[in-house]
Amino acid sequence: MIDLEFLINTLSLGSLYALLALGLVLVYGILKLVNFAYGEYIMIGGYGLYFSATVLHLPWWATMLFAVLAAVVTSYLTELAAFRPVRNKSANALIVTSFAVSIFLQNAVLILVSPRARAVQLPAVFSRTVSIAGATTPVRNLIIIGTTVVVLVALSVLMKRTVLGMAMRAAAEKFTTTRLMGVPANLVISAAFIISGLLAGIASIFWIGRSASVDPVTGSAPLLIAFIATVMGGMHSPTGAVVGGFVYGLLFNILSITLPAGMISYRDAFMFVIVVLFLLFRPEGIIKGGYTEERVG
C-alpha cells in the first residue's frame, strides 16, 4: 500500500499540517499562548480569497496575496487589541482571551457576511492531475509540497540569519533577558503574530482550496489539526511543530486506509486517543527541549 501515490499524498497533507502547526507554535514559543483564534486567521484568509475574487475581481495570484495579507492583518490586529492588554495577566486569561477573540471573529463574519458557506474558486491548474512515475496526483499536492519547502527554508533563514530571528529565538528561551538586551518586547511579539498570520494565510489558500468553500466556522478544523500536531511534535520548538505536522499527516492517511468503512467517521476520535496515549508516555512530544516554560510578565 506504500506506493508513490500514498507518499505524495502524505507529504502534501503533512506539509499543510506542518504549516498550520508552525504558525501556532511560533506564538506559543514566545508568549506561551495557546492561540484559539489561530483558526480564525485561516477563516479570514478564506474570506479574503472569496472577497477579492468575487467583489474586487482580482486575478488569481492577487487574490492569494490578498488572502495572505488579510490573515496577517487580522493576526496583528488581534495582538494589538486583545493580547497585548492581557499579556501580563495569568496564562488562563490569555487562553480565554484567544477563545473570546475566536468567538468574536466567527460571529463578526456571521453578522457581516452570512452564516452560509461561500464558494471559492481556485485556478484550474490546482485541480488538474499529473502522473509522475506512474502515480497520479493533483497538481495541488505538488504545489503544497513546493510552497512548504520554500516557506520552511525562508523561515529558517529568518530565524538563523537575521537579528530579528535571533531576538525571537532568544525571547522564546528567556523573554526578560531578551528585553535586557534592548530588544523591545512588542517587536518580537508582533513579529511572531505577523509570521503566524502569514503561515495561516498561506495555509488557508490550500485549506480552502481543498473544500472550495468558506464559512464562519471553517477555522475550527485546521485549528484542531494544528493543536494536535503541535502537542504531538512538541510545543517547545518549531522543529517539533513541523515533525508533528508530518507525523499527523501520515497517521491520518494510515487511518483512512486501514479503518473499516463503518468506523471512518470516528477517525478524528481515534486520532486523538492515539495522541493522548502517546502523550502519556512522552508528555513533551516527539521533539524535546528548546523553548522553556517561562511566562511573559
Binding site: I95, L224, V231, Y266, D268, F272, V276, L277, L280, P283
Partner: peptide, 25 residues
Amino acid sequence: YPLMRLSDFVGVITLFATLIVFHVI
C-alpha cells in the same frame, strides 16, 4: 486518569481535544 497527568499547556489542548472526541461520538 491520563488527562490529569499532562502538564498545563498540553493539558489545555488535550482537554479541548477530548471535548471534540465527545462531540464526534
